[in-house]
C-alpha cells in the first residue's frame, strides 16, 4: 500500500485516481500508524513552501518522514513535495525543509530572463544519472511542470533536468528518497509509467 500524505496541502484527487487506475493500492492519510505501515509514501504538495513546511512540522509528519526515510522506506515527493525534501527554501523568506536531499530551493525568475514564470507546461527530461526510477522513461518523454521555484546545489542527488533557461532539476533522488518537480499524475502515459515504476521499486 502507498500512503499519500494528507497534511492539508494540495489536491490529491488526480494522484489518488492515477494510482487506482494503475491498480496500485493507495490511501490518502494523515494517520501516523497508517503511514508507518505503508510500503511506500508519496508526499504531494501545492502552494507555498513555508506553509507546507509548517504543516508538516505541526502534524508531526516531518519527524515521521525523517525516521521512515532513515529506515529505508521509499518516499516520492511531487512538485512542492519534492522541494520539501531539500534542506532549505528561499521562497518568501528562509524556511527549513526535511533535509532528506542535499540542496536548496530558490526563485526561478532570478536566474532566467525572457521566459515566463511559472515554468508551466510540457517539458522534456535530460537524464543526468541513470537510476531504476527511469526504467520506463525515455529521453524524449515529456512531463507536465507547474512551478515558480526550483532546486539548486543538489548535484549529489540530481537525476534529471529540464531545460528552461537554466537546467531545472526535474528528478532528484538518493537511495530510497525521490522527488519529481513535475506532476506525474498529470503527465499522461509517461507520468503513469513513472508512478508505476516507483510503486514497483
Amino acid at each position: 500500500m502507498i500512503a499519500i500524505i494528507d497534511y492539508g496541502c494540495g489536491n490529491l484527487f488526480s494522484l489518488s485516481r492515477s494510482l487506482q487506475f494503475l491498480g496500485i493500492e493507495s490511501k490518502i492519510t494523515g494517520d501516523a500508524a497508517e503511514i508507518s505501515d505503508a510500503d511506500k509514501i508519496i508526499l504531494p504538495g501545492v502552494g507555498a513552501f513555508g506553509d507546507a513546511a509548517e504543516k508538516l512540522n505541526s502534524t508531526g509528519h516531518a519527524d515521521l518522514l525523517k525516521k521512515l526515510a532513515k529506515e529505508g522506506r521509499y518516499i516520492l515527493g511531487i512538485c512542492l513535495g519534492m522541494q520539501l525534501l531539500f534542506e532549505k527554501s528561499y521562497e518568501y523568506g528562509e524556511h527549513s525543509g526535511l533535509g532528506l536531499l542535499e540542496g536548496g530551493v530558490y526563485p526561478l525568475d532570478a536566474d532566467i530572463s525572457g521566459l515566463k514564470v511559472p515554468h508551466m507546461g510540457w517539458n522534456k527530461l535530460d537524464i543526468v544519472r541513470d537510476d531504476p526510477i527511469f526504467a520506463n522513461t525515455g529521453k524524449d518523454d515529456y512531463f507536465y511542470f507547474v512551478h515558480s521555484f526550483y532546486a539548486k546545489n543538489c548535484d549529489s542527488c540530481l537525476l534529471a533536468t529540464a531545460e528552461y533557461g537554466v537546467d531545472v532539476p526535474a528528478v532528484a533522488g538518493r537511495d530510497n528518497v525521490y522527488g519529481t518537480q513535475f506532476h506525474p499524475e498529470k503527465s499522461g502515459e509517461k507520468g503513469l509509467a513513472l508512478l508505476k515504476t516507483f510503486a514497483e521499486l
Binding site: 484527487f13 488526480s14 485516481r17 487506482q20 487506475f21 507536465y144 503527465s187 499522461g188 507520468g191 503513469l192
Partner: peptide, 8 residues
Amino acid sequence: AASEVFIP
C-alpha cells in the same frame, strides 16, 4: 473524466 484521463 479526471479518473481516466491524466493530463491537465
